[in-house]
Amino acid sequence: MRNAVKQSWITFKSIFTGMGVTIRHFFGPTVTLQYPDERMELPKGARARLFVNIDDCIGCNLCARACPVNCIDIETVAATQDVDLGKTSTGNPKRFWLTRFNIDMAKCMYCDLCVHPCPTNCIYMVPEYEYSEYDRSNLVYHFSNLEPDMVAEVKEKAELEAEQKKRDREEMMRKKAEEKAKKEMEEKKKAEEKSEATSDDKPANDKQGEE
């Protein structure tokens, strides 16, 4: 009998304790975030969508090399001498046209490794996490701001310039070679003249010149 009373006392006590807990929560604050209406502030340094400030990019390719999954695809074309691409906001001179700068966010694994090598801090993660797409190809972000015809023009120019440079170099080489040959000839002449003047004195020298 005493045991039964004790048991029922414990039962009722635990029931009322539990009900006390639930009623406290009933009147307590809720933790729900009404998602599309309210958003949680992302913590500092949260890893989310990559963004490239293309105006600051110097085309050094370090990010693409750092990427473990090769999701960054960069193509650069050297700027011709007649254009000045200016400087980045950090003061580095820009020397390349960025004809292609694609990041495949479907491949990206948010490791943040591309962010740190960048010398001009132009690639970084922005607190943006809602970019679902119906087509996977839409997840490839094109950051290059060059128009296609501009790209073609730039490439053509660069090729022309490269050819020009090659030709110039060849010309220079030829000139150098000619000069060298001329010089040698002159030296030879001089030597001959000298040897003619002093032919009997130094036969060894003459012999060397002939060779």
Partner: peptide
């Protein structure tokens, strides 16, 4: 709603 509030949620909104 009661279930929601007791579980610190909001219930249908």
């Amino acid at each position: 709603k009661i279930a929601g509030f007791i579980q610190d949620r909001l219930g249908p909104m």
